[in-house]
Amino acid sequence: MDRAADFDSILVVATRQIGDVLLTTPLVRAARRRWPGARIDVLGFAGTLGMLAGNPDISHTIELPARLGWKGGLAAARRLWRRYDLALVTDGGDRAHALGWIAGRRRSGIVPPGESSSSWKQRLLHHCVMAAGDRGTVHTVAEKHALLAPWLPPASPVPAVTVPEPEDLPADLAAALKSGAVVVHAPSMWAYKQWPIAHYAETVRSLLDQGHQVVLTGSGSPRDQACIAPLLALGQPPALLDTSGRLGFRQLVTLLHRAALYVGPDTSVSHLAAAAGIPVVAVFGPSNPMRWAPWPAQAGQPVTWRRAAGRQTVGNVTVLQSELPCVPCGRAGCEDHRDSRADCLPHIHPERVLAEARRLLQPA
């Protein structure tokens, strides 16, 4: 493959969840550095591209409905047909690869190994990156960056994650927010990633008792609100602020820039906090940190996570895990489905999180 190839138009296909979209930004930054004059667009599903707001490396974003149907699929095909010199397919799914083939005259993509669809996907690609899988050793950020391997010098450093452009907070929250606040994100989208709410409550209570302002984040969804509701009785404003359902991603960046510490689970907001540069304490259960730990803000240097370490820190990110021998299993909890329990998470006691908070909040 021609390492010196010049591409005038590039499409990044990012058809997964919000956090996965955010983790494509190092790939986008690397492409922008390699081809500074190119048009670089990102295609994703409606409601998932907010993490890209104001990203200076992106020319345009293209939103498609999550359920295209035949008519929608044909309309998308007509809209995208061979519009791009290069398509970078960051998702191993069938639809992502079909869209990449439709849109790009040349294609580089991630392919899941061992699946019945893997062979036809490889045949569509000019460069193939075999996915490491949730039990693998290659971080998803580095895996996406490898899509550019044919056109970059060997061992090119992986850029940092790019956060959305900051936006002002609502006036009442901006006025109430104190220097040194601790942001706590309690909700997880899936049950098998959910640290017990009772553990969050003990953590929040202790932080408040120590005189720290605590700011709760989350969406306005019923699940998020159910997770946050028990924490609201632990304090009153301004000591305890509830921002759930009020902030977009750009406002979250502003909040994180003004805070002193973030505590949260394996979720998109934890990735955002890490990229914003705030000290992060991330509570991990079944997920493999080698694949999914928040990417630290100090990228450009080697980022190496261990599979299981109890406690490990890379840059501004500390990951805490249970020391049960099955951790991390790389599955969707003990029963391997989204609503499964994860016995490892209750074993991470609040005292461990609070110890990290004390260490990170003490004056330099």
Rank of each mutant, 00 (worst) to 15 (best):
L320W: 02
Q210R: 14
S118K: 07
T243E: 05
P164A: 13
S244F: 04
L345T: 06
T61P: 07
R359T: 14
W195C: 00
W120Q: 01
S244R: 03
W195K: 00
G300A: 08
I102V: 15
D168W: 01
G235S: 04
S206Y: 09
D242Q: 04
V28I: 15
W101F: 15
P238L: 07
L361S: 06
H337D: 08
S108Y: 13
V111G: 09
A308P: 00
A87C: 05
S270L: 00
T25M: 04
A355F: 07
R107H: 11
H185W: 13
L240A: 08
E115L: 12
P302N: 05
G248H: 09
L22D: 12
S119A: 14
L124E: 02
L216M: 03
T203R: 03
V283P: 02
L247A: 09
C334P: 00
W35K: 04
A66H: 14
R246F: 04
D343M: 02
R250Y: 02
G277F: 08
G109I: 12
Q236A: 14
A293I: 13
L216P: 02
K71V: 11
R359V: 07
H199E: 10
V182K: 01
A226P: 00
P26E: 11
P196R: 10
R291G: 09
L177P: 01
W35A: 03
T203Q: 06
V253L: 06
S206K: 08
H271Q: 14
P230C: 00
S188G: 11
I58S: 08
I278F: 06
G133H: 04
R33P: 00
P187N: 11
P159I: 03
P164N: 12
T217D: 07
S322E: 02
A274I: 12
P328I: 10
Q298H: 11
A75P: 01
T313R: 15
V303H: 01
W195Q: 01
P196C: 11
R352W: 14
S117A: 13
T15I: 11
L88R: 08
A293D: 12
G54C: 07
L231T: 09
G248E: 09
A38S: 14
L22R: 08
A308H: 13
R352P: 01
G50M: 01
G44N: 04
A66W: 13
I58L: 11
R359M: 10
T254R: 12
P237S: 10
V129N: 08
H97P: 03
V204R: 05
Y84V: 08
T90M: 11
Q236C: 05
